[in-house]
């Protein structure tokens, strides 16, 4: 194990050496490409062997076709949308002519969400849920990390809730939201709240735990310095705790975001809330000869977005921490 780590370190270290630059650069490009090529070949081969009741399992080509289809559908839907608004304006004008007191209102488009729309919805939902989670979890984590008393008191609750599959929360969340969120002109839809709160609930725990560990393990010397200087609690957190705990906080956030993205797709599938999960479920229900390749296309997109989310957190982590060595992939 330690040899592997040393090897890994050496590889990393090589990056800095000018002599190995070109070779390194070539292998950094070619190896992943070769990996992808082998994967595509295996996939294509395996797909032809699997025959489902909906036809053959989609290979890379079928999925590529679907990406084109999905994009075309998106474009077509936008055209329909433009026509919808045009008709609506005419209708409004006609009504104003007939009934001058009428205040015309533009209603949002009533057509279906396209694949691209669903991606947008999922991204907005996951980020909202995640940010809300961070707003709750980080202060809570800091408080727990600072006070061993609080830590001991809260610990059992965290330990019990941490392993709960977020999907178990979903029915409860749905019922509570529909009971409490009553409004004639809601700002956001209930389905959005359901997905968002489910995401929040499950990305809470990794952040709380990591933040509290990070805060609790602040160098004792630094804590003593703070004591000597008689810093107020707020200054203590600001000057001593946060800077040392930031790498751990970000590790927690990265874990959380990964969990959040996985949970969101499942929650959308289960609750039929708009988003990529619903797209997958709808296609599964349709059971057409196109369904499997469309689902596969969605799977790839879900994976790719998950990867991008992780990379952007990593980038943020690097920007925010002073100890760059902690923030590795």
């Amino acid at each position: 194990m330690s040899r592997v780590i040393t090897l890994f370190r050496n590889t990393l270290a090589l990056e800095g050496q000018p002599g190995a630059g070109l070779n390194q650069w070539i292998s950094r490009i070619t190896l992943p490409l070769a990996g992808i090529a082998v994967f595509l070949m295996l996939w294509s081969f395996a797909a032809r062997q699997i025959d489902t009741s909906l036809g053959a399992f989609p290979g890379p080509q079928a999925v590529a076709t679907q990406f084109v289809n999905l994009y075309n559908e998106h474009v077509a839907e936008r055209e329909k949308e433009a026509a919808f608004y045009e008709r609506q304006e005419k209708r409004n004008a006609a009504r104003v002519a007939e009934d001058p007191d009428y205040v015309p209102k533009i209603r949002p488009y009533t057509g279906k969400e396209t694949f691209l729309d669903q991606i947008g919805t999922s991204l907005v939902t996951v980020m909202s849920g995640f940010l809300l989670g961070a707003l709750l979890a980080i202060p809570l984590g800091i408080a727990i990390g600072l006070s061993p008393t609080l830590s001991q008191a809260v610990n059992p609750v965290i330990q019990v809730f941490k392993p709960v599959s977020p999907l178990a929360w979903l029915p409860l969340v749905t019922m509570v939201v529909s009971a409490l969120y009553v409004s004639d002109d809601p700002l956001v839809s209930k389905s959005f709240l359901n997905s968002m709160i489910t995401v929040t609930l499950c990305c809470l725990w990794p952040m709380v735990v990591n933040t509290s560990v990070g805060v609790a393990s602040v160098d004792k010397d630094l804590v003593n310095v703070s004591r000597v200087l008689k810093l107020s609690t707020l200054r203590h957190v600001q000057k001593i705790v946060l800077p040392s705990a930031i790498p751990m906080i970000f590790t927690g956030m990265r874990l959380s975001l990964g969990v959040a993205w996985m949970v969101l797709i499942a929650a959308e599938m289960l609750a039929q809330n708009p988003g990529l999960g619903k797209f997958v479920w709808d296609e599964f229900q349709n059971g057409s000869s196109q369904s499997l390749s469309r689902i596969m296309a969605a799977v790839l997109v879900i994976g790719f977005i998950g990867f991008l989310l992780d990379r952007s957190m990593l980038w943020l982590q690097r920007r925010a921490s002073w100890d760059k060595s902690v923030a590795t992939s």
């Binding site: 709808d282 296609e283 229900q285 057409s288």
Partner: peptide
């Protein structure tokens, strides 16, 4: 009806 947002079957 065969559009994915309605019945969606072939």
């Amino acid at each position: 009806l065969s559009q994915p947002n309605y019945v969606g079957a072939d």
